[in-house]
Amino acid sequence: METVTATEGADPVLLRFEEVSKVYPLPAGDVIALDRVSLTVERGEFIAIMGPSGSGKTTLLNLIGCLDVPSSGRLVINSRDVAELSDDELTFLRRDTIGFIFQHFNLIPLLSVLENVEYPLILKCRDRAGCGQTPQMALRAAGLDDERLYTHKPNELSGGQQQRVAIARALVNDPSLLLCDEPTGNLDQKTGKAIMDLLTEMNRNGKTIIMVTHDLGVAGYATRQIQIVDGRIMEDTG
């Protein structure tokens, strides 16, 4: 499984879409969520993906995050064609090299704040001590300093706090790629700015960040903006 990440650093190209389409077959007719998209992302980029609702942004992010595979075309991540990877290999890729920050936080309600952040660490390292990183470190890095909150369940936290927990969880395994689906969508401006500053810092520290947003101001933090309409890339500043 480690072979998937072994080539990291050697090749500046992190991932490449070649004529990738994603079709959802529905009874009422197929939905073409992505239509022959071609795109190259290099390591260390900070990309904002924008576009109207239903244009295919989340679908694109899910493909990059190995949560889904293309209907047609080639998607190469870390020099490996995802079509050739098994479900387990895709899972290992997600677990070890990709951090997800979802629009709706998607924390696990059964687990406390600390356990939510610790969970991917346990999956990856088995032995909690062996990872170097601790959930506390990740939570502090995500700006959640108040340790009294760590034993709370996610639903006892504010939206901004939950988003920070979600960010800490995405960071804890020190992924090389951060995927964010509207990371500030549910937050007030002040908290949103704090989160964006945090992401900017992560990017400076070498992480590749791909972020979906509706907000032009938020998109301004990124170094490259991509516009999607009806499953096609309309504009790409990169």
Binding site: G65, Y119, R169
Partner: peptide, 15 residues
């Protein structure tokens, strides 16, 4: 939904 989250952060099918 919870299973989806577990899978998305890297939980194997077998797990």
């Amino acid at each position: 939904k919870e299973i989806g989250i577990l899978r998305s952060v890297g939980t194997l099918r077998n797990e």
